[in-house]
């Protein structure tokens, strides 16, 4: 099982690496590239903690192989803030205590980024659809729902009536 060469753009930077075929994308990001902001929660695709964006779409990085992202672009939580300036979604999570232990948070944020990049004014159903794909054990989701509302406002969308 020879290693295979891959080229992948991660958070705007091109990387080349030689990887074993069985190496998961999550392990590749974390342990080969040191991008440890993507966390691993279940390794069977249920918890959503390892969500990253592939070509702008959020996916479980535990259910992808590193070889499969050859030629693709990957976005992780490390790519969001610009220097000292947090991304509006990160700001919103901070403002609304949308996190406690923070372990699941990068997965939520990446999925929400996909949503808000495509749809700045999502409906309650669309928001829940996205959040429903991840598990948070700390917040009971209340802070996360507030954070989404705040992020929508920050990013210029209208305000969903989520908490009415």
């Amino acid at each position: 099982m020879a290693g295979r060469q891959i080229r992948v753009n991660i958070n705007g930077t091109d990387h080349q690496a030689i990887v074993e075929p069985r190496l998961s994308l999550a392990d590749f990001l974390r342990h080969e590239l040191g991008l440890t902001g993507t966390h691993i929660g279940c390794e069977h695709g249920v918890c959503g903690i390892c969500n990253v964006l592939i070509d702008g779409r959020s996916m479980r990085s535990c259910l992808l192989l590193a070889v499969q992202v050859d030629g693709r672009s990957v976005e992780t939580v490390e790519g969001l803030a610009e220097g000292e300036k947090l991304h509006p979604i990160q700001e919103a999570f901070m403002d609304e205590q949308g996190l406690q232990c923070g372990f699941c948070t990068p997965g939520f944020i990446m999925s929400l980024k996909e949503l808000l990049d495509r749809n700045p004014n999502p409906s309650e159903d669309e928001i829940k659809d996205v959040l429903g794909g991840s598990i948070c054990r700390c917040t009971g989701y209340a802070g996360i729902l507030r954070a989404v509302q705040s992020a929508v406002a920050k990013m210029g969308g209208g305000r969903p009536s989520l908490l009415d």
Partner: peptide, 9 residues
Amino acid sequence: IGHPQIRNR
């Protein structure tokens, strides 16, 4: 089916 992250892939 599942969730958006699953349907994306």
